[in-house]
Design a protein around this nucleic acid. Structure first.
Length: 695
RNA sequence: GCCAGCAUAGCUCAGCGGUAGAGCAACGGUUUUGUAAACCGUCGGUCGUCGGUUCGAUUCCGACUGCUGGCUCCA
């Protein structure tokens, strides 16, 4: 659950800027703090109670930060004892005692000097003074409080903590709580700082709400795409033979993938896109030019070193021969200058210069010579844009050709850290619903708008009602560092994007200083029907990289101009999008997406009945319906149970009664028997539902 | 990469210092059926891998690998 939240808040990685600096840690202002909801106060207070309990068990514990978070709270603690879930019961026991004591959360305002003194004595984040065990993290926290801001403590019972609050009135106001997990975290989130144990818990006003929360977690677990994916036979991750983070699409998952690609192809074709296809590899030069190397090298699969060939081989040979020539010439020159110097015909300085040149030439030649089997690096592509740029470069372009919309379900490979891999949500190989739109400045607004319209069209098809577009813009201080140094172009593009968002009345939030280095971007966050949040897609403007590849078109005034480029991937990657859809629909896909669209169930295997059933099956399959037959002698109850379990969307039950009437009995997954219908009507309905992609 | 938890049949799980069991699935039969499971049988596991302790390890200990929950990172 938490992982999804992080996926969402930290943005999806498609097209994300590799040069982007880490946003500065947010520090809540006192105003923000006063806006804390009652639930947040309960949770924040529960964190203090947690610390109180831990101190009663391990008085030497040092605490760092203990805020409320989306689903609960945590406190970061440094303690030589490794807290494990087995310790939770006794910690909770101590917490209950503190809650039962119903101590008041007392606010105390102190001077900075007093606070430093109390931190040094170990009193802060402790039950008493602890000589020789200073509250080191609290000292660090104190440094973050701006001069002039009031410094306050909160005290419950003996526990005194540096804290801006606010809290509930008394510890007894914490209704119901539970410790949930233990994790590790770096102090202030910086891996250079000490590693702390982060104890997570959750708290609610009352037991009922706590129970509801755990029930919701259960529901989320039930809908987990990994669980449903295995049950329905959609995908497999074969770590032993294929590798971690690389999904194999099984036939049934492949059917969903196919349905999505067809949707994308139709939608894009109608919107004037053209399809291209690119290899999965490229030479090092590609990523040096795009700017992805060396900054992004860590996230790419390591280079493949191939023997030199073609152009690279020629260049190498030229390099070797010129180095050798320089070496030989400098040797000859050194000898002759030494000779003339002996004869007194030249200066010693000349010999020194010749000798320096000789040494340099020798070094150059030796370096080349010692390089056994010179190779050239190839990389698996981590993004499709450079390949598309080279497609643009492959032919001359006129302004009349623009906008040029190149689309491809491109396969990308990213060497994500092992700890980050997560089902289909975070993988190392992915199929991206990618496209790059090359256009003139004048065309930009309408192109960008069309892309947004496409997003909305997709949202409607999938019943995604809650979404927000995060519009990330530049910041003046990053010009020339984080961002390409084109302040005017930035302003112009950002204004254009903002205007499009306003005009189209799209739900968006603007986030300054989070743009890509080559332009502003929009991340699309959606919520599934059970309220899980996903960042599915990214949409970016690029006014820098096309220039690096020297892309131009001939403008009306007969000059060569660099096109703008819009990166877009409305359906994200197959991996993440299907992962989202599985959880969104809980595996109960609408007919057009369902891997098993129709199953014909016969009552027995009577020859005439079978002929009738097979005729219907053939008709469906001739119309590309994913239909199959269950023609065995199992009882109909068993066939139905099996089909329901497999989440077959439409079951056609056929017995003698139906055959005689030229009908079929229709049963829909999860909805039960909807009655008999003439055969032709049932088939027509199935075809229409698929064609219209009905929900 | 870091911290913690987990790893037994295809799946869900039980068991335990004396080399393993259930249900479902699969397979072979029997069963000819009206809306969520008819019956019988068979197959199936170096108990994740490697090492240590032990007369003996699936069980205890360690390392590794993978998965999971977090952290860090993320185009």
């Amino acid at each position: 659950m938490r992982k999804q939240e992080r996926l969402a808040t930290k943005e999806h990685r498609e097209h994300k800027n590799f040069m982007e600096a880490k946003p500065e840690a947010d520090r809540k202002s006192l105003d923000d703090r006063n806006k804390m909801t009652e639930l947040e106060r309960i949770r924040h207070s529960a964190a203090h109670v947690l610390a109180t309990a831990i101190l009663r068990l391990w008085p030497e514990a040092q605490f760092a930060a203990g805020p409320p978070v989306e689903n609960g709270f945590y406190y970061d603690v440094e303690l030589s004892h490794r807290i494990s879930p087995e310790d939770f019961a006794k910690i909770e026991e101590e917490m209950k005692k503190e809650i039962k004591a119903n101590n008041v959360f007392e606010k105390i305002i102190v001077t900075r000097e007093q606070a430093i003194k109390d931190a040094e004595s170990g009193r802060l984040g402790g039950l008493a003074e602890r000589p020789g065990n200073a509250s080191k993290f609290k000292i660090g926290n104190l440094q973050d409080i701006p001069e002039g801001e009031a410094i306050s403590y909160f005290k419950n019972g003996d526990f005194l903590d540096l804290c801006a609050g606010p809290h509930v009135m008394r510890t007894g106001n914490i209704g119901a709580f539970k410790l949930t997990q233990v994790a590790s975290a770096y102090y202030k989130g910086d891996e250079k700082n000490p590693q702390l144990q982060r104890i997570y818990g959750t708290a609610f006003k009352n037991k009922t709400q706590l129970d509801e929360y755990f029930k919701m977690l259960e529901e989320a677990k039930r809908r987990d795409h990994r669980k449903i994916g295995a049950e329905m036979g959609l995908f497999a991750i074969d770590t032993e033979y294929v590798g971690p983070g690389m999904a194999l699409w099984l036939p049934k998952g492949g059917a969903i993938l196919e349905a999505l690609e067809t949707l994308a192809k139709e939608t894009e074709f109608a919107a004037g896109y053209v399809r291209v296809k690119t290899p999965h590899l490229a030479r090092e030069k590609m990523y040096k030019t795009s700017g992805h190397l060396p900054y992004y090298a860590d996230s790419m699969f390591p280079a493949m070193h191939l023997p030199l060939e073609g152009d690279a081989k020629t260049k190498r040979e030229q390099l070797e021969s010129s180095a050798l020539k320089r070496f030989e010439e400098s040797t000859a020159k050194l000898i002759s200058s030494a000779e003339s110097n002996i004869k007194g015909e030249s200066q010693t300085a000349d010999v020194r210069a010749a000798s320096e040149e000789f040494l340099a030439a020798q070094k150059g030649w030796n370096t080349l010579r010692d390089e056994k089997d010179p190779t050239e690096s190839y990389y698996l592509k981590a993004m499709n844009c450079p390949h598309h740029h080279r497609i643009f470069a492959a032919e001359p372009h006129s302004y009349r050709d623009l906008p040029l919309r190149l689309a491809e379900y491109g396969t990308c490979y990213r060497y994500e850290q092992s700890g980050e891999l997560f089902g289909l949500m975070r993988v190392r190989s992915m199929n991206m619903n990618d496209a790059h739109i090359y256009c003139t400045e004048e065309q930009f607004a309408s192109e960008f708008n069309a892309v947004n319209e496409m997003y909305l069209k997709y949202f409607k098809i999938f019943g995604i009602e809650k979404y927000v577009m995060r519009f990330s813009t530049s910041a003046p201080e990053g010009m020339g560092k984080k961002y390409v140094n084109e302040p005017e172009l930035w302003k112009k593009t950002e204004d254009m994007v903002r205007q499009v968002l306003i005009d189209s009345k799209i739900n968006y939030v603007e986030v300054p200083n989070e743009a890509a280095f080559y332009g502003p971007k929009i991340d699309v966050q959606v919520w599934s029907v059970i309220g899980r949040e996903f960042t599915l897609a990214t949409n970016q403007v690029d006014f820098a990289v096309p220039a690096k590849f020297g892309l131009t078109y001939r403008a009306k005034d007969n000059t060569d101009k660099t096109p703008l480029c819009i990166h877009r991937a409305p359906l994200g990657t197959h991996e993440r999008f299907i992962g989202f859809l599985i959880e969104h629909y809980a595996g109960n896909f609408p007919l057009w997406l369902a891997p098993d669209q129709v199953r014909i169930l016969t009552l027995g295997d009577d020859e005439k009945l079978l002929a009738y059933a097979k005729e219907i099956l053939a008709e469906l399959r001739a119309n590309m319906v994913r239909a199959e037959g269950d023609f065995g002698t199992d009882p109909i109850k068993a066939k139905i149970a099996e089909a329901e379990k497999a989440k077959v969307h439409t079951m056609l039950v056929i017995g003698g009664r139906d055959m005689d009437a030229g009908a079929v009995s229709v049963r829909l997954h999860g909805k039960g028997n909807v009655g008999a219908k003439p055969k032709a009507e049932a088939v027509a309905e199935i075809l229409a539902s698929i064609k219209e992609r009905r929900a």
